[in-house]
Design a protein around this nucleic acid. Structure first.
Ligand SMILES: [Zn+2]
Ligand SMILES: [Zn+2]
Ligand SMILES: [Zn+2]
Ligand SMILES: [Zn+2]
Lengths: 144, 144
DNA sequence: TTCTCAAATGTTACTTTATAACAAGCAACT
DNA sequence: AGTTGCTTGTTATAAAGTAACATTTGAGAA
């Protein structure tokens, strides 16, 4: 199963980083993996409540924060949501496209465009750090 | 004064667009202009309450939405905030650079890089919507 | 002028999103 | 066992954003 496989990889990834993928964090990661695209914190919270009977917002937010810091999820600010990173360990910068309609997500390589950006920003005296580019739009299926 | 000058330009800009920069909208724009960088809706709301005694969230959000739609402000999703667009009339999308150290904000024209992005995303079946790019980095003054 | 209509603003109430602060649990080492 | 530091539980509240309906206002039509 794809999810189990991802979890396994995530586990290794965390061990390498010297951080712990605890049962709770794993459970939250599994819940996020259960969605095809962007998930909101309170959706995860609701799911968690179904599975364990009770859970409060900080429980979910802490787990999500951890997973983002560990590079297993990305936060999508424009949608107040989270997506799974399918390039764990690639160590490249991502170009993340999120469909604002259906939440479908695609992650491409941002290297070429970040080269352009670094040059432009450099001209203004700004040094751009390592990061992902997140863009919203509309996917093939949701096209008007 | 710089603010008065900007307001004047904003006024002309709105007339050209066939939309109205009403007293309220102008007042909100002035309040945002009073800040050096990113401003939050509830800061503006508090300021507005000081000036007119009473105001509710929708009053501020509607004005801010208008100003964003008119191209006078940009929304900064990652910070739940707004910044003044210093390229009014350019009709561009913003490349917003935020210094992770000092919070300074710089805005460039994102059109060229978004052209590249649209092409790359188009290849993956994604239509990228009108938006700003926000990137973090380090500004000239904070350079190591 | 007076009417009418649409846009703008006011008002109330609420939803969604996120965090602070402190208590309790748990695992690893001494 | 005792200590320490990280993790999780719990309560309460803050911050951000919107729905729905009432009221005002101002420009054009009658
Ligand atoms: Zn990724
Ligand atoms: Zn879609
Ligand atoms: Zn701009
Ligand atoms: Zn700086």
């Amino acid at each position: 199963m794809e999810i189990a496989c991802f979890i396994e990889a995530a586990d290794r990834h965390c061990q390498q980083q010297g951080v712990k993928l605890t049962a709770l964090r794993r459970q939250v990661l599994e819940l996020v993996l259960g969605y095809p695209g962007v998930v909101k914190a309170y959706q995860v919270l609701a799911d968690l409540q179904k599975q364990r009977g009770i859970a409060a917002p900080p429980t979910v937010y802490r787990a999500l924060d951890f997973l983002v810091a560990a590079g297993l999820l990305h936060k999508v600010d424009a949608l107040n949501g989270y997506i799974v990173c399918h390039h764990v360990g690639c160590n490249h910068e991502g170009l993340i496209l999120v469909c604002g309609d259906c939440g479908r997500v695609e992650e491409l390589d941002a290297t070429p465009v970040l080269d352009v950006l670094r040059q432009q920003a450099g001209g203004a005296g700004f040094a751009i750090s390592q990061q992902n580019l997140m863009l919203t739009g509309r996917c093939k299926e949701c096209a008007v």
